[in-house]
């Protein structure tokens, strides 16, 4: 009981210390100029204004919509493709070089083309997120299918399962934990990509909010945007942890 209480309390110590330290060096003692680093009170005020005028909500929703659109598009392409490549060795060999070359390209490197191809707005951002997520999900899925326990495949075969049954009823379920890990990694990348994409080719979203606030000498809003991104990250991480716990194989 006490241990449990202690475990929940310990992670809070450092953030509280940081906030106090942050307050002291900015608004408290004025060691750092406020235009270089806004203090906690300025940030709270900025947050309050953004909540009241609804901008925080609309921009957050806007970013999340892009994240999900990109992630879902990537999953729709990468999961079936990963299963296919994991199943047909020849096809994997056929595609491997292209994947190896495209995979290390940072998603933000696609920004110029995304603007050329999709203009300004939601689609270029979704495209960049797609490019960022598609490879991790693909690789994880491919790996999951290939790592299916041989004993399970052979058991199914000696129970009369044909190739299709083995794929559908053994390899795919066995790859599910890997796919979820891939989605988790993809989610993190998607969030990063969205913000970068919004800073370049977009007129809305948290990334856009952060960038415009800085140029309008409103550093409080910038920090609010950063913190909201962090919070979104935590929430998704918690969700994925829960999902992964439910998959026990």
């Amino acid at each position: 009981m006490f241990d449990n209480y202690k475990n929940k309390f310990i992670p809070l110590i450092l953030p509280i210390c940081i906030i106090i330290f942050w307050y002291l060096i900015t608004e408290g003692l004025g060691i750092v100029d406020l235009y270089k680093l806004p203090g906690p009170i300025t940030v709270c005020q900025a947050a309050w204004i953004l909540i009241l005028n609804g901008k925080l909500l609309t921009n957050t929703v806007d970013t999340l919509v892009k994240v999900f659109a990109g992630l879902i598009a990537a999953a729709v392409v990468a999961i079936p493709l990963g299963i296919l490549l994991g199943w047909y060795k020849t096809l994997e060999d056929f595609a491997s070089l292209v994947i190896s070359v495209l995979r290390p390209i940072p998603p933000v490197a696609w920004i110029p083309f995304s603007i050329l191809w999709f203009g300004i707005g939601m689609f270029p951002a979704v495209f960049i997120i797609f490019m960022g997520c598609v490879f991790p999900i693909l690789i994880y899925t491919l790996d999951g299918v290939k790592r299916t326990d041989k004993v399970l495949i052979e058991s199914a075969q000696t129970l009369g399962a044909g190739d299709r049954d083995v794929l559908k009823r053994i390899m795919i379920p066995s790859a599910v934990p890997y796919v979820v890990s891939g989605l988790r990694v993809g989610m993190g990348i998607a969030l990063m990509c969205t913000i970068s994409a919004e800073m370049v080719g977009s007129g809305s979203g948290l990334g856009y909010m952060i960038l415009t606030a800085t140029s309008l000498f409103d550093p409080g809003t910038t920090v609010v945007g950063m913190l909201v991104i962090g919070l979104i990250g935590i929430v998704f991480d918690l969700i994925f942890t829960k999902v992964q716990k439910r998959i026990f194989w």
């Binding site: 058991s155 129970l159 009369g160 399962a161 599910v176």
Partner: peptide, 30 residues
Amino acid sequence: PSGDRAVIFQQYSLFPWLTVLKNVTFGLEM
């Protein structure tokens, strides 16, 4: 391999994502 010659392995070979009942009916469905 064929359903006529079932193998019971040294390692445990039940499908971990299926319940006992569904493991047992797997072969019948095949």
